[in-house]
Design a protein around this nucleic acid. Structure first.
Length: 286
DNA sequence: GACCCAGCAAGCATCTGATC
DNA sequence: GATCAGATGCTTGCTGGGTC
């Protein structure tokens, strides 16, 4: 098995803020974590973002704030062949909180970073924030820093959607990381097929019972809860694409073998039936 | 008539607590 | 991390009602 995390953001001695542009059809495809807080704006591309115990669809105009040491992975939708274009900022949350400690004027930003635990999503991101993110790569260091302050200030005032209900308490060990990565990789590549607990436990070199415990301890949800969420997110993507595909076919393509079970799970997670979700996408209420 | 959705019951897979 | 037993809850298949 290949070696992966923990990830280290390359940073020079003269920079506290890293701006990174990613342009690729296949993004960095390993579940990873790093000490730096990550703010990512999606210019183009779409796919799935895995953060800790949660899965989110991403698309153009979305902005994500991923907290320190939160395991995550952006997976671009290769089937559509659209290149993903993302602009990301990385910075040490602890350093910023400490540096701002003596400036009462920055109290709101300090509290914001302190309470960032679950991360956040802005979908779609307000236009002024989107413009700010796209300007970052062309700014000189000083302007980059002042713009960064302004960005954080704006983020404290927008309405946010938390990314996850589970805050990772610590860094994952290397062995645990390899296991979790193998599990995520297998599931994301095979969720449309039937996956048994035995299959996935074998993959982790564990008994089914030990695997259930291992997975729950590290994600705060059962393996099948995770799998169902992944399948429902995929179904949402298919529904959002329109094309008048029957609900039954979408259920099948998302890995469900029974429409009634698909309907039930969909409603549990999205609060509405699949057909209602499809209609709401058509009239643009999302 | 076709499709979608929800309710129900049975069987089975999965989860959990206790213990080693 | 493994084993065991009991509890829990998930899946499946069937049915009937609603909507277009």
């Amino acid at each position: 098995m290949k070696k992966v995390y923990p990830f280290k953001i390359p940073k020079s001695l003269h920079e506290s803020l890293i701006v990174q542009i990613d342009r690729a059809t296949v993004l960095y495809d390993k579940l990873h974590q790093h000490e730096e807080v990550q703010i990512t704006y999606v210019v183009s591309g779409n796919g799935k973002l895995f953060v800790a115990d949660s899965i989110h669809n991403f698309g153009p105009g979305d902005l994500f704030v991923i907290p320190s040491n939160s395991p995550h992975l952006f997976q671009n939708n290769i089937e559509e062949g659209i290149e993903a274009h993302m602009i990301s900022l990385f910075f040490s949350g602890n350093t910023v909180v400490k540096a701002f400690a003596h400036f009462p004027e920055l109290g709101n930003i300090r509290s914001f970073l302190h309470e960032l635990g679950a991360g956040m999503k802005l979908s779609p991101c307000p236009e002024n924030l989107a413009e700010q993110m796209q300007e970052f790569p062309s700014l000189v260091p000083f302007r980059k820093f002042t713009r960064f302050l302004s960005l954080l200030d704006r983020l404290t005032r927008v309405s946010k959607v938390p990314l996850t209900g589970f805050v990772y308490p610590k860094e994952i060990s290397h062995n645990e990381g390899q296991r979790m990565r193998a599990i995520f990789e297998y599931v994301t590549n095979n969720f449309q097929k039937e996956i048994s607990l035995n299959d996935i436990a074998d993959l982790a070199y564990m008994t089914p019972n030990a695997f259930c415990r291992f997975f729950k301890q590290r994600t705060n949800k059962t393996f099948f809860q995770f799998l169902i969420e992944l399948r429902i997110e995929h179904a949402c993507q298919l529904l959002a694409q329109g094309h008048d595909v029957p609900i039954g076919e979408i259920a099948y393509k998302s890995g469900f073998r029974s429409i009634s079970n698909f309907n039930r799970k969909f409603k549990e997670l999205k609060g509405m039936a699949p057909s209602k979700y499809y209609r709401s996408m058509e009239v643009g209420t999302f």
